[in-house]
Nucleic acid binder design. Structure first.
Lengths: 245, 245
DNA sequence: CGACTTTATTTGTCAATCCATTTTTCTCCA
DNA sequence: TGGAGAAAAATGGATTGACAAATAAAGTCG
């Protein structure tokens, strides 16, 4: 008997998922555009609606589309952000496969370099954004949550303006993860760093002084570190009672 | 009229997804364990099977479970790896939101530091793994694909043994992404680095010489860089015709 | 005892139907 | 003519019931 090849057993919904994903990645559907409706795709692929729905659901879970209901509803292609990276890091942390100490150690390597690069790439636009972020941090916030988020504004702008989008893709999720940890524990009173440290970083960046920007960032992170490490134990105690978002 | 609260409109499958995810994260289901069958969950949550399926599908897409068919089939909880991070980076790259130059720049910062840490943390076990990886690289491989993958063995072991799992979570996906790019372009003949460079890194690590390990890694990456940058244009030409995996 | 067959369990797919949401269009009245 | 409200239409969300496909375990027969 001739040796036949085994028939690959794959789920139809997987095939559809990959085709749609491929179409998005190759630009056949641009961000903002709408995929065909479920019923149309049913006809196109000649499969049941359930399968189409599962495929689209996977696209949504992967962050490629958002789904809206009603006429003019459907699966709309999203601009690919860093949410998935963030979610992945968050889950690793929640699973206990990463500690605050490790998080800070990585930030201590990457962030000074990012600030250094930001100082080299600064231009009129980014300078304005940076000053706005710093000013935003200084404005009083109604809630603790907003205060914590506001505090990260400068860091996020620096990550964005460093000229390397991969640095941004790594650092922004790490900063958001730090936020998440602080907010979960909610140490209402604690203030980890004062405004002057961010001011020093921004000054150095605006002066295009790379080494100084890196040094100021490094110093800033040392300040943050001590406060954060104390939080982890509290955090681990709480997450048992808090539902995953 | 008293002001009623708006009824939150949420998808049932989302609620189920979050509950199951939460149960996994909190350890109610450990890696290797099986979630209840679809029909059981149907009873538990008092919802239709389709909804249960969508929720489980999302868990699979998020990398929390693998689904098997047949008796003893079902949704088995996975050990959370770095696949999701890798996928996220890969998609960002495919979407043109990250370049090879940026990838290399980040590796040039992180990898020397990782090697330095590896030199500080090396012990009997990790030393053995490292030597095995280096020996594995030296053994001839039948196919180009295996050669490329084999070449990364040492880098992956170093990332694993550096003592910071977040570095591993970042670097391993970046190394795999580099692989993926090389393999897609398939420059059959090209050899980017010779064995001696990895040997130098391993020697320094085993000698517990952190600075030297970092320096050797830095030098190694410089070698890799020049070869890689030429590849990107070829890569971009191809991905239009290659389906997303 | 071993090879084959059957059976049972579980996921995969389908079809038809109805509900919920939301935008557009129509209608009717001031 | 305008505008408010009602109806229609388009789309995703959910249900039900049935059958197919895969696969591990139990049974059967030589």
């Amino acid at each position: 008997m001739p040796s036949f090849l085994p028939v690959k057993q794959i789920r139809v919904s997987d095939v559809v998922f990959k085709q749609l994903k491929s179409a998005i990645l190759s630009g056949q559907f641009s961000p903002g555009q709408k995929l065909p409706s479920e019923r149309e795709l049913t006809e196109t692929f000649q499969i049941s609606r359930v399968v189409v729905r599962e495929a689209i659901r996977s696209l949504e879970t992967s962050g490629f589309v958002t789904i809206r209901q009603g006429p003019h509803g459907g699966a709309y292609v999203k601009e690919l952000g860093f949410d998935r990276v963030f979610e992945s890091f968050l889950d690793l942390f929640l699973m206990g496969r990463m500690s605050v100490a490790e998080l800070i150690q990585v930030r201590q390597l990457i962030q000074p370099e990012v600030s250094r690069l930001a100082a080299l790439h600064v231009n009129a636009d980014s300078a304005r954004l940076l000053e706005e972020a710093l000013a935003f941090e200084a404005t009083p916030k109604p809630s603790h949550a907003e205060r914590v988020k506001g505090r990260m504004a400068t860091d996020l702008v620096l990550a964005k303006m460093c000229g390397n989008r991969l640095y941004q893709a790594i650092l922004e999720p790490l900063i958001r993860l730090t936020q998440e940890i602080i907010l979960t524990v909610k140490p209402e009173k604690t203030v980890f760093h004062d405004h002057s440290e961010h001011q020093a970083i921004v000054d150095a960046v605006l002066a295009r002084n790379g080494p100084e920007a890196a040094a100021a960032t490094s110093k800033h992170l040392n300040t943050v570190q001590s406060g954060l490490l104390k939080l982890e134990k509290d955090f681990r105690k709480r997450i048992g009672t808090v539902s995953a978002s």
